[in-house]
Nucleic acid binder design. Structure first.
Lengths: 201, 201
DNA sequence: ACGTATAATGACTGACTAGTCAGTCATTAT
DNA sequence: ATAATGACTGACTAGTCAGTCATTATACGT
């Protein structure tokens, strides 16, 4: 009982730190974010953060892990629905966009290319992100394969297409920053994705 | 005469610095790159860099400017060719990919979302990148409009599509890092872009 | 060769942040 | 009541790097 309470408190504080770290890293990026920023946002002193995380990069890794775990949960939830593959993909796109908007950041982060960390931590990030991205690609390519099997989609390489789909989601978000007509027009880009640019004959 | 020689030397050294900065910033990113890295790569002392650039961010801005100027020159050159809109777009994709590969970097940089600079310099970057990206989008959307006019492409929002196209190029590059089957298969992704995912009826 | 202007150098300074650790305090056990 | 424990604090240290500037080297004209 007592031990449970202690562990609860530890988990609770750690989770609070991660939750705040996610928001701040998303908004300011790794290098512009200080450990003190995160500590203050959590209502703690900086030294406390080091009770839970070995160092800044360890915190970052934990944050990314959390981020991708959430994303995968969301994707899995959508995939479990009894809807068509196309509808699944549409829901995935919309939910990712909503998640990003919820972070109230001016740009999307947490893809490894944003991060220029030391080689060792880059490998850590890689070792966490890569399986998660593979899992995402696996999940989306399963959906695509279903669509191909039931003749909704044409025959394509499912994994490349899955990756392309994730990039398309990113384009939806970024287009808002550069194309004044965009305005989070998910439908427009989704239509391009599904219909292509070529005129149908 | 003397003044011309001096100016020549100044321009020459400055250009050398920028050239090296481009490679190193591309590989290591802004924060992981030190001014001394760039100085040494150029064969100069660190203090010399400050003869030509006000500060690190000024150097970065100049580097980005150079990068985008080159990119736009390349795009303009391709656009001037007498080939179909689709061929133009294919050449653009291939030449951008080749440029990135030439930088020998493991990821594509120089889009503002990678950079968490101080507000003022972020605005500087923005003020340089934004017109250039708009110019790129303008150029590509002209090509798309041509394709729509001559019935090669279906009717789409040209600017959103142009942006989506640029994102697609990025996806080609990144897919190499996550999808083992990708292997710079530009054709596969270009086909997806032009044909879409939906099965044709 | 000499003088002058300019290019270039690298040791130094100081701002900044990650990480450390002695100390505090609330809670629990005895 | 006292001791032990662990969550937490914040002053401090160490390392890093952007930027500075006195000094040196080079280029060029006379």
């Amino acid at each position: 009982m007592v031990i449970d309470n202690m562990r609860k408190k530890e988990t609770k504080t750690r989770d609070k730190i991660i939750k705040n770290a996610l928001k701040i890293f998303a908004r300011k990026g790794y290098f512009r974010t200080t450990v003190d920023d995160i500590a203050q946002a959590t209502g703690l002193a900086k030294g406390t953060v080091y009770l839970y995380f070995k160092d800044k990069q360890d915190l970052y890794v934990a944050t990314i892990d959390e981020h991708f775990t959430r994303a995968l949960d969301t994707l899995a939830g959508i995939n479990a629905k009894s809807i068509t593959p196309r509808e699944k993909m549409q829901e995935i796109a919309i939910s990712v966009i909503n998640y990003i908007r919820h972070l109230k950041t001016s740009y999307m982060l947490f893809t490894f290319e944003n991060i220029n960390l030391k080689g060792k931590t880059l490998k850590n990030i890689h070792s966490i992100i890569e399986p998660k991205i593979q899992e995402m690609i696996d999940l989306i390519s399963d959906i695509i394969e279903d669509g191909v099997a039931n003749k909704q989609f044409r025959k394509v390489d499912p994994r490349i297409t899955a990756f392309y789909f994730l990039s398309m989601i990113r384009a939806i978000f970024l287009s808002n920053l550069y194309v004044s007509e965009a305005s989070f027009q998910t439908d427009t880009v989704l239509k391009l994705f599904f219909e292509g640019l070529n005129k149908r004959r």
